[in-house]
Design a protein around this nucleic acid. Structure first.
Lengths: 203, 203
DNA sequence: GTCTATAAGTGGATAGAC
DNA sequence: GTCTATCCACTTATAGAC
């Protein structure tokens, strides 16, 4: 289900095996991270031998790279879509929508995005170029959004935009360490976070 | 130097070998995390054979557990000390001092605290009891501080204290992913973060 | 307290049959 | 496209000499 949603966010047609491998890898990377997740584990969970993975991918790094990039692309598109859907809303509503979309991608059944955060520091010390680009592109969305919010006086204009963006995204991503569905809904969390970074003006 | 400071924060006298091993492990864990850091690496950096590590520790997990706990104790004591030093300051100054102490422990030469964050999700899925206790104890400091700040109206009283604390600590700890010394000073970062979570009232 | 030597297992990756 | 079989480097950990 969420897998279907995530699939729609990526390339249209391709062999189902490749997708199944990535889905599985995403799930394992989400809980185990890079070094804990082994090719044997992935293969077993998929239901094939680990040697068969090499028909679809050239290396472990290639699998992880694909998962990580898909994860960032997924949250990227979700946030862009949320902003488009709230194009005519107030700036503050737009901010809350973006926060909600980011958190939903993180805590919904989207293994890719969580795996992406968990695997932030990659196997190889400098992340592959593709990873850096994809992240940079998503960052750009927030860079623009922060600028819009500062211009609209929803976020404090006198604060450094970079610190603001890093502060907010750090807090959002950090929620993977403590948030567990069931106590709050993600929507409540989003409202709470939006209120913290951009307090509603006292009426 | 920072190592000396950190040492002072822990047990007084003990064999220097054990300490040296932990210092080295902390440094490697900080950059590599749990699974990337091997006993061979640690031993080589210390200048002994890896088998010799087993004279001092029973297992890799025991080494990591010691580093992680020392790291949390270090930042814990640093924040408590900062609050004590600002006992008579305004609530807002106390908050900024606590944020500054936390960030300094994270980005100074304190390998232990950074390693602790990086190794947050431990090897074994449920972290050892000792780790959970030590973290809980530190959390308590912030729980009290947040309550104090909400009472003093420095932090918004109408927001959920738990969300507030997690939001703030997430943002602080997330800075390990992007902050690099040199551009800002840690003190500037602390001031910026304090301003973001607790905007000064417009005069 | 540190060493050499080694066990027992697992990691990623490849060759080649089917 | 998936399999069996295998390679080899490297992992944590132990045994026992010095």
């Amino acid at each position: 289900m969420s897998v279907a949603v995530e699939r729609a966010a990526r390339e249209p047609v391709e062999g189902g095996s490749r997708r199944l491998i990535l889905d599985t890898a995403a799930r394992l990377l989400r809980s185990g991270g890079y070094h804990q997740t082994t090719l044997r584990e992935i293969a077993e969970a998929v239901g094939i031998r680990k040697a068969s993975l090499y028909y679809h991918f050239a290396s472990k790094e290639e699998i992880v790279e694909a998962v990580v990039n898909d994860g960032v692309r997924f949250v990227h598109e979700a946030v862009v879509a949320a902003l488009a859907a709230h194009a005519k809303a107030t700036p503050r509503e737009r901010l809350e929508a973006a926060i909600g979309a980011h958190l939903t991608a993180l805590h919904g059944h989207g293994d890719y995005t969580s795996a992406s955060i968990k695997t932030f520091t990659f196997g190889a010390s400098p992340a592959p170029d593709s990873v850096r680009w994809v992240r940079r592109a998503y960052e750009e969305v927030w860079r623009e959004l922060v600028a819009e919010m500062q211009a609209a006086d929803v976020l404090p204009a006198e604060r450094a935009p970079e610190a603001l963006r890093n502060f907010l995204l750090g807090a959002l991503n950090g929620s993977t360490d403590w948030y567990r569905p069931g106590r709050y809904e993600v929507a409540e969390l989003a409202a709470e976070f939006a209120a913290l970074i951009a307090p509603k003006p006292t009426p």
